[in-house]
Design a protein around this nucleic acid. Structure first.
Lengths: 184, 184
DNA sequence: CGTCCGCTTGACTCAGATCAAACTTGGTGG
DNA sequence: CCACCAAGTTTGATCTGAGTCAAGCGGACG
């Protein structure tokens, strides 16, 4: 970055200082649904929000898992309708702001715009990495690739979520974890 | 867009008017390789460039297929090294420009920065759509999803490329196409 | 104490990867 | 014109990994 400040820091500073509204979501509560008109941007302070889309067969697919410091629906800032739904996982605190305000701020503040572009570029890389992960056919391969990106295996109780993120069935992941437990 | 101009138009206008260098790539020629330091942005005028990454097993995966009007390595504008390689498919004409120049232009021109952000947002959506497509397990499902996005089936001779894009084996795609040929 | 939820494990099934062999198409040169 | 070659396509046979259904286990919590 030109100023030597990380993009996340710049964006966080903007959301925390500006006229955004604080909101709280309960477990399972939706911030928006697939197809809704795009009105608000969200910045996660605490907790986690999942972006979900349902395939033709009705199976839900996780598009993004947004944690603290992430912007929700970053890809929808210039869209008319959301192309996915956002569901809170556990209790989540976040800041929401009308898209129009955010876009005006981007036009007015070049440094913010640069940080935003960097953030989006990073999101593109992560999305592509995820697409690449899902071309791997074996559970073992996907898990290895995931562990290469994220160093730590989540705690017991979070494994179903991991299975969803890897795009495999619960049982298949449990089995793979069992195999690894009986080795190194 | 604020100005009512599509982001692609704005970006194309910038690349064509500015001090970029025209280049031509032959079939199979690389613009850059995985791991190279990021130096240049590319804008495709004609032909196609594929972004490839190799999995641990050595199988190449297509991350993006950039055609006329697309920017190559848009996700790498703020990265140090490329996270994939770029190989020309057929003969390709493009405009290249140092990243530093492009980033300076983004800081100086708010409208260009907005168009750029919109372009990136679109790239995020496409990458997520591709990830979603690859969570479908059957060839038929993936092909249907792909046909839902892109209206037309490519010509004979391009089916291997399609198989790679769908993340299935050549034979599996041929079989699925054969089944559909004997019906509607 | 009983229920719920996540985890574990078994048995079965099936779609697609892989290996293999033939066929089509287009181009090249004799 | 034909022999020949290369690349892409077609089709068959086999194998394998993961999805699915199903049953049982264990801790947390009211």
């Amino acid at each position: 970055m030109a100023a030597g400040v990380s993009p996340v820091t710049t964006i966080r500073a903007y959301f925390e200082s500006d006229s955004g509204t604080r909101r709280q979501l309960q477990d399972g509560e939706a911030l928006f649904h697939d197809g809704d008109p795009v009105r608000q941007m969200g910045f996660v302070l605490e907790g986690m929000v999942r972006l979900l889309r349902h395939t033709a067969g009705g199976v839900p697919v996780v598009l993004q898992a947004a944690g603290p410091g992430d912007v929700i629906a970053e890809a929808s800032a210039y869209s008319v309708n959301y192309h996915c739904g956002a569901i809170s996982h556990g209790q989540t605190r976040l800041i929401v702001q009308p898209v129009s305000v955010f876009r005006a701020a981007l036009l007015a503040d070049a440094a913010l715009a640069e940080a935003w572009a960097a953030q989006l570029a990073h999101a593109v890389q992560r999305a592509r990495t995820r697409a690449e992960l899902r071309t791997l056919r074996t559970v073992a391969g996907r898990l290895d690739a995931w562990l290469g990106e994220n160093r730590t295996l989540p705690d017991r109780g979070q494994w179903q979520a991991l299975a969803a993120e890897l795009g495999v069935s619960r049982e298949a992941l449990y089995r793979e974890l069992a195999v690894r437990r009986t080795r190194g």
